[in-house]
Amino acid sequence: MTGLARWVLFDIPIGTVLPEEFLFRGVVDTVATAVVGPRAALVFGSTAFGVWHWYDSGRSVPVVLFTGAAGALFVESKRRTGTILTPMALHWAANSIGAVASTWWRSTRGDRPPRR
């Protein structure tokens, strides 16, 4: 299995999507909705999701804001479909597109792909 295939088929879904979705959409959103209501829970959970990515993003404010917005989309998808599988699929797709795009970008510049 190539590095990219492993990244997309194993590392992203098992190492990133499952734990983050269970934590943020499964626990944080559920508890926060019960405590402060759905609107405040959406803001709180999305902000927490964005901040969670602060160090991984290289301390990039635009990446944190984008990730927070993605978190809001993931919450809404869970609420509208009634299942955590929908945000999991969206999260996996978003991260996989990023992995493929970054690998392609590095290859056009002659850089090595990231090691995973």
Rank of each mutant, 00 (worst) to 15 (best):
I14V: 15
G15H: 07
E20L: 14
F22H: 00
L23I: 06
L23E: 06
G26I: 05
V28Y: 14
D29A: 13
D29C: 10
T30S: 04
T30L: 06
T30M: 09
T33A: 13
T33P: 11
A34S: 05
V35M: 02
V35K: 00
P38A: 15
R39L: 12
R39W: 11
A40N: 01
A40W: 14
A41Q: 04
L42G: 03
A48S: 06
A48V: 08
F49I: 11
W52Q: 03
W52T: 04
D56E: 08
S60Y: 03
V61Q: 08
P62S: 00
V63P: 07
V63C: 12
T67R: 06
G68C: 12
A70Y: 11
F74H: 08
E76P: 02
S77A: 15
S77Q: 14
R79F: 15
R79I: 15
T81D: 03
T81R: 09
T81L: 11
G82H: 07
T83S: 15
T86A: 13
P87C: 07
P87T: 09
W92K: 06
A93S: 07
A94W: 05
A94V: 02
A94F: 14
N95L: 13
I97T: 15
I97G: 09
G98V: 08
V100E: 07
A101R: 07
R109H: 13
D111Q: 11
R112T: 13
P113L: 03
P114L: 14
R116K: 08
